[in-house]
Simulated scan of single mutants.
Amino acid sequence: MLGPHRYGKAETRLVRVHRDGDTHGLVDLNVSIALAGDLTATHLTGDNSAVLPTDTMKNTVYAFAKRHGVGEPEEFALLLARHFVRTQGQLDSARVSIESFAWDRLGPHSFQRRGDHTRTTVVTVTRAATQVVSGLTGLVLMNTTASEFHGFVKDRYTTLPETTDRILATAVDAKWRHLSDEADWGKSFQGAVDAMTTAFVNTYSLSLQQTLMSMGTLVLAKRPELAEIRLALPNRHHYLVDLSAFDLANENEVFIAGDRPYGLIEGTVTRDDAPPATAEWYQ
C-alpha cells in the first residue's frame, strides 16, 4: 500500500540582481519545492500523466524571479506555492522552502557575504489554507558568565561537576509560525531575531531550557503576528583547561571549545489561543 508521498525539485540556487539604476540589489536564495496530490498512478504503474516535471519547477523559479522580481523570501515562496496549486488541478498542496543568504552592501554594486546566520522560510499552500513559517539557522550566541548548572540528577555514571559560573554558548535554529499569510515579513523577521538575542543576553540562566523558554516567550510578547516558535539550542560546551601542571591557576579564563558530542535542547513556545497548524511546520 502506498503511504504519504510528495515530490519536487530540491535546492534550486537563485541569485537575483535588481539593476535599478546605478545602485543594485542582490538576493541569494536556495529554493526547494515539494508537491503532493493525486500521484498514485506514477508510483504504481509508472503513468506520468499527472506529473509536472521537477525541471519545470526549477524553470518556474527562474522565470518568476525575472518576471516578478524577488523581495522577501516569504513573498516569493507564497507566489510559487500558490502558482502550483492554482495551475495543477491534480495537486492538493505545494510546499516551498527557502534558505536566504544575506549580503552586506559595500558600495553601489559591491557586496560582502554575511555569515552569522541563514534566514529560512517554509510556505505550505493547500486547497483550503495557507501556512507561513519563518526562521533562521546557525545564529551563534555566547554569554561568558551569568550561567549556572547544578542540582541535576546524579547516578553511578555522572561525572559532570556542578557549576555556578560557566560559559553558555549555542547556535540557534528557530522556526516561528505566522497567524496569517500577510505580514511585514522583513520587520517581523528582524523583530523576532532582536527579541531572541535580547532574551539570551538578559536571562540569568540556571539551565539552557530556561533560556529557551525566555527566548520564545519574549518573541511572542514582541511579535503579535506569531502563533508559536520552535527553538533548537545545541549546547556548545566550553571546558576549563587544567593548567595546574604549569603552576598556573585557571579562574574561568582558558577553555577548550568542544565540538562533539553536545547537548541538544529543543522546545516549542505556543501562544495560549494559537490556532492549530494546518501542516507540519517544525520538522
Rank of each mutant, 00 (worst) to 15 (best):
G263T: 06
T60K: 10
T60I: 10
A169G: 05
F84Y: 15
A227W: 06
V31Q: 07
A77I: 01
Q90V: 08
G267T: 03
G89F: 07
S100G: 08
L264V: 13
V51A: 09
W176L: 01
P73D: 13
S188H: 10
A195M: 05
D181W: 12
A77Y: 08
L52Y: 07
I167N: 13
F149Y: 14
L106F: 02
G135A: 09
V15S: 06
L231T: 06
D47Q: 03
S49W: 07
E74G: 05
K175E: 15
T87R: 14
S244H: 10
E225S: 10
Q210S: 12
E253W: 00
Q210C: 04
D273S: 08
L212M: 12
V219P: 01
D28M: 03
V133Q: 04
H238I: 02
V31S: 08
K58P: 06
I256K: 02
F200N: 05
T12Y: 00
K58W: 04
T45C: 12
I167W: 05
A199K: 02
S188R: 12
K9R: 13
K154V: 13
A10L: 14
A227H: 05
N252K: 05
D184V: 04
P224C: 04
F101S: 10
V172D: 00
Q209N: 08
V27Y: 07
I265C: 03
D273W: 01
D273T: 10
A199F: 01
G107V: 03
W176N: 07
